[in-house]
Amino acid sequence: MHISEGVLSAPVLISTGAAGAALTVFGFYKMKTEMLAKTALMSSLFFVGSFIHIPVGPTSVHLVLNGLVGAVLGFCAFPAIMVALVLQALMFQFGGFTTLGTNILVMALPALAGYGLFRLGMKTAGTKRWILFFLTGSVPVFLSAVLLSTVLALSGSRLYDTAKAIFLMHIPVIIIEGVVSMYLFNFLNKVYPDFLRTEYEN
Protein backbone atom coordinates (compact mmCIF):
# COMPACT_ATOMS: atom_id res chain seq x y z
CA MET A 1 0.00 0.00 0.00
CA HIS A 2 2.99 2.33 0.48
CA ILE A 3 4.02 4.55 -2.40
CA SER A 4 7.76 4.24 -2.87
CA GLU A 5 10.16 7.15 -3.20
CA GLY A 6 10.94 8.38 -6.69
CA VAL A 7 7.74 7.21 -8.39
CA LEU A 8 5.42 10.23 -8.20
CA SER A 9 5.75 13.50 -10.08
CA ALA A 10 6.67 16.73 -8.24
CA PRO A 11 3.20 18.42 -8.47
CA VAL A 12 1.47 15.29 -7.11
CA LEU A 13 4.05 14.92 -4.32
CA ILE A 14 3.71 18.57 -3.27
CA SER A 15 -0.11 18.77 -3.39
CA THR A 16 -0.80 15.43 -1.68
CA GLY A 17 2.01 16.08 0.80
CA ALA A 18 0.51 19.45 1.76
CA ALA A 19 -2.98 17.94 2.11
CA GLY A 20 -1.66 15.04 4.21
CA ALA A 21 0.34 17.40 6.43
CA ALA A 22 -2.63 19.75 6.97
CA LEU A 23 -4.95 16.89 7.93
CA THR A 24 -2.32 15.42 10.28
CA VAL A 25 -1.87 18.76 12.05
CA PHE A 26 -5.66 18.92 12.47
CA GLY A 27 -5.60 15.32 13.79
CA PHE A 28 -2.97 16.29 16.39
CA TYR A 29 -5.11 19.25 17.41
CA LYS A 30 -8.11 16.93 17.89
CA MET A 31 -6.09 14.49 20.02
CA LYS A 32 -6.52 15.11 23.76
CA THR A 33 -3.92 13.86 26.27
CA GLU A 34 -6.39 11.17 27.47
CA MET A 35 -6.50 9.84 23.92
CA LEU A 36 -2.72 9.46 23.72
CA ALA A 37 -2.48 5.84 24.94
CA LYS A 38 -5.21 4.61 22.62
CA THR A 39 -3.78 6.50 19.62
CA ALA A 40 -0.29 5.12 20.29
CA LEU A 41 -1.72 1.61 20.70
CA MET A 42 -3.59 1.78 17.39
CA SER A 43 -0.48 3.24 15.78
CA SER A 44 1.60 0.28 16.96
CA LEU A 45 -1.13 -2.17 15.86
CA PHE A 46 -1.10 -0.56 12.41
CA PHE A 47 2.69 -1.02 12.41
CA VAL A 48 2.54 -4.65 13.57
CA GLY A 49 -0.37 -5.39 11.18
CA SER A 50 2.00 -5.22 8.22
CA PHE A 51 3.77 -8.32 9.59
CA ILE A 52 0.63 -10.44 10.03
CA HIS A 53 0.42 -12.40 6.81
CA ILE A 54 -2.84 -14.05 5.82
CA PRO A 55 -2.87 -16.85 3.23
CA VAL A 56 -4.81 -16.30 0.00
CA GLY A 57 -4.46 -19.36 -2.23
CA PRO A 58 -0.78 -19.97 -3.06
CA THR A 59 0.30 -16.51 -1.90
CA SER A 60 -0.32 -14.32 1.17
CA VAL A 61 -1.36 -10.74 1.90
CA HIS A 62 -0.85 -8.53 4.92
CA LEU A 63 -3.56 -6.53 6.64
CA VAL A 64 -3.73 -2.74 6.22
CA LEU A 65 -5.99 -2.15 9.27
CA ASN A 66 -6.79 1.47 8.40
CA GLY A 67 -10.51 0.70 8.81
CA LEU A 68 -9.93 -0.53 12.36
CA VAL A 69 -7.73 2.48 13.22
CA GLY A 70 -10.35 4.86 11.79
CA ALA A 71 -13.24 3.12 13.55
CA VAL A 72 -11.53 3.38 16.95
CA LEU A 73 -9.89 6.81 16.61
CA GLY A 74 -11.87 8.91 14.12
CA PHE A 75 -9.77 11.94 13.12
CA CYS A 76 -6.95 10.87 15.47
CA ALA A 77 -6.25 8.15 12.86
CA PHE A 78 -4.11 10.75 11.04
CA PRO A 79 -1.45 11.11 13.79
CA ALA A 80 -1.63 7.36 14.55
CA ILE A 81 -1.02 6.35 10.93
CA MET A 82 1.61 9.09 10.51
CA VAL A 83 3.72 7.78 13.41
CA ALA A 84 3.51 4.19 12.14
CA LEU A 85 4.49 5.31 8.63
CA VAL A 86 7.47 7.31 9.96
CA LEU A 87 8.74 4.24 11.82
CA GLN A 88 8.17 1.97 8.81
CA ALA A 89 10.05 4.42 6.57
CA LEU A 90 13.01 4.70 8.94
CA MET A 91 13.27 1.07 10.01
CA PHE A 92 12.28 -0.84 6.86
CA GLN A 93 12.38 1.79 4.08
CA PHE A 94 8.67 1.25 3.30
CA GLY A 95 7.60 4.59 1.83
CA GLY A 96 9.88 7.50 2.70
CA PHE A 97 10.21 11.14 3.64
CA THR A 98 8.98 12.72 0.41
CA THR A 99 6.04 10.32 0.08
CA LEU A 100 5.05 10.53 3.75
CA GLY A 101 2.27 13.09 3.18
CA THR A 102 0.93 11.13 0.21
CA ASN A 103 0.98 7.86 2.14
CA ILE A 104 -0.81 9.50 5.09
CA LEU A 105 -3.48 10.85 2.73
CA VAL A 106 -3.86 7.48 0.96
CA MET A 107 -4.24 5.46 4.18
CA ALA A 108 -5.70 7.84 6.77
CA LEU A 109 -8.33 9.71 4.73
CA PRO A 110 -10.27 6.48 3.94
CA ALA A 111 -10.02 5.57 7.64
CA LEU A 112 -12.66 8.27 8.24
CA ALA A 113 -15.06 6.22 6.09
CA GLY A 114 -14.34 3.33 8.46
CA TYR A 115 -15.30 5.57 11.39
CA GLY A 116 -18.65 6.50 9.79
CA LEU A 117 -19.50 2.94 8.78
CA PHE A 118 -18.58 1.58 12.20
CA ARG A 119 -20.75 4.14 14.05
CA LEU A 120 -23.60 3.20 11.71
CA GLY A 121 -22.97 -0.49 12.44
CA MET A 122 -23.13 0.09 16.19
CA LYS A 123 -26.63 1.57 15.81
CA THR A 124 -27.97 -1.50 13.97
CA ALA A 125 -28.29 -5.19 14.84
CA GLY A 126 -28.30 -8.63 13.22
CA THR A 127 -27.22 -9.19 9.63
CA LYS A 128 -27.17 -5.46 8.91
CA ARG A 129 -24.53 -4.99 11.65
CA TRP A 130 -22.39 -7.84 10.28
CA ILE A 131 -22.52 -6.28 6.80
CA LEU A 132 -21.59 -2.84 8.15
CA PHE A 133 -18.69 -4.33 10.15
CA PHE A 134 -17.52 -6.04 6.94
CA LEU A 135 -17.71 -2.71 5.10
CA THR A 136 -15.82 -0.95 7.96
CA GLY A 137 -12.82 -3.10 7.09
CA SER A 138 -13.16 -3.35 3.32
CA VAL A 139 -14.34 0.13 2.23
CA PRO A 140 -11.29 2.01 3.65
CA VAL A 141 -8.92 -0.43 1.91
CA PHE A 142 -10.93 -0.06 -1.32
CA LEU A 143 -10.78 3.74 -1.05
CA SER A 144 -7.06 3.59 -0.25
CA ALA A 145 -6.48 1.47 -3.37
CA VAL A 146 -8.52 3.98 -5.43
CA LEU A 147 -6.52 6.93 -4.00
CA LEU A 148 -3.23 5.10 -4.56
CA SER A 149 -4.13 4.38 -8.19
CA THR A 150 -5.33 7.97 -8.67
CA VAL A 151 -2.11 9.57 -7.42
CA LEU A 152 -0.14 7.19 -9.65
CA ALA A 153 -2.31 7.97 -12.68
CA LEU A 154 -2.01 11.73 -11.97
CA SER A 155 1.78 11.39 -12.08
CA GLY A 156 1.74 10.84 -15.84
CA SER A 157 0.08 8.79 -18.55
CA ARG A 158 3.04 6.37 -18.43
CA LEU A 159 1.80 5.18 -15.04
CA TYR A 160 -1.85 4.48 -16.07
CA ASP A 161 -1.30 0.74 -16.46
CA THR A 162 0.77 0.58 -13.25
CA ALA A 163 -2.15 2.26 -11.44
CA LYS A 164 -4.61 -0.29 -12.88
CA ALA A 165 -2.35 -3.23 -11.96
CA ILE A 166 -1.83 -1.97 -8.42
CA PHE A 167 -5.58 -1.53 -7.93
CA LEU A 168 -6.24 -5.10 -9.13
CA MET A 169 -3.54 -6.41 -6.76
CA HIS A 170 -5.49 -4.97 -3.82
CA ILE A 171 -8.80 -6.74 -4.54
CA PRO A 172 -7.99 -9.82 -2.38
CA VAL A 173 -6.89 -7.51 0.47
CA ILE A 174 -10.21 -5.62 0.27
CA ILE A 175 -12.20 -8.84 0.73
CA ILE A 176 -9.94 -10.40 3.42
CA GLU A 177 -9.80 -7.17 5.42
CA GLY A 178 -13.61 -7.04 5.36
CA VAL A 179 -13.97 -10.63 6.59
CA VAL A 180 -11.35 -10.20 9.35
CA SER A 181 -12.88 -6.86 10.45
CA MET A 182 -16.37 -8.40 10.58
CA TYR A 183 -15.24 -11.06 13.09
CA LEU A 184 -12.88 -8.67 14.91
CA PHE A 185 -15.48 -5.96 15.62
CA ASN A 186 -18.01 -8.56 16.69
CA PHE A 187 -15.41 -9.99 19.09
CA LEU A 188 -14.42 -6.59 20.51
CA ASN A 189 -18.05 -5.56 20.86
CA LYS A 190 -18.68 -8.63 23.04
CA VAL A 191 -15.39 -8.79 24.98
CA TYR A 192 -14.32 -5.14 25.36
CA PRO A 193 -17.12 -2.74 24.35
CA ASP A 194 -15.47 0.19 26.18
CA PHE A 195 -12.57 0.06 23.75
CA LEU A 196 -14.85 1.02 20.87
CA ARG A 197 -16.16 4.18 22.54
CA THR A 198 -14.68 7.49 21.27
CA GLU A 199 -15.50 10.40 23.51
CA TYR A 200 -12.04 11.88 23.97
CA GLU A 201 -11.83 14.14 20.91
CA ASN A 202 -11.47 17.91 21.31
Partner: peptide, 15 residues
Protein backbone atom coordinates in the same frame (compact mmCIF):
# COMPACT_ATOMS: atom_id res chain seq x y z
CA UNK B 1 -9.76 -15.69 9.04
CA UNK B 2 -11.99 -16.05 12.10
CA UNK B 3 -9.06 -17.32 14.20
CA UNK B 4 -6.80 -14.48 13.04
CA UNK B 5 -9.53 -11.91 13.74
CA UNK B 6 -9.97 -13.27 17.28
CA UNK B 7 -6.18 -13.27 17.69
CA UNK B 8 -6.08 -9.61 16.66
CA UNK B 9 -8.97 -8.82 18.99
CA UNK B 10 -7.34 -10.59 21.93
CA UNK B 11 -4.05 -8.84 21.07
CA UNK B 12 -5.86 -5.49 21.31
CA UNK B 13 -7.58 -6.34 24.61
CA UNK B 14 -4.39 -7.59 26.31
CA UNK B 15 -2.23 -4.78 24.92
Amino acid sequence: YKTLAYLLGMLLVRS
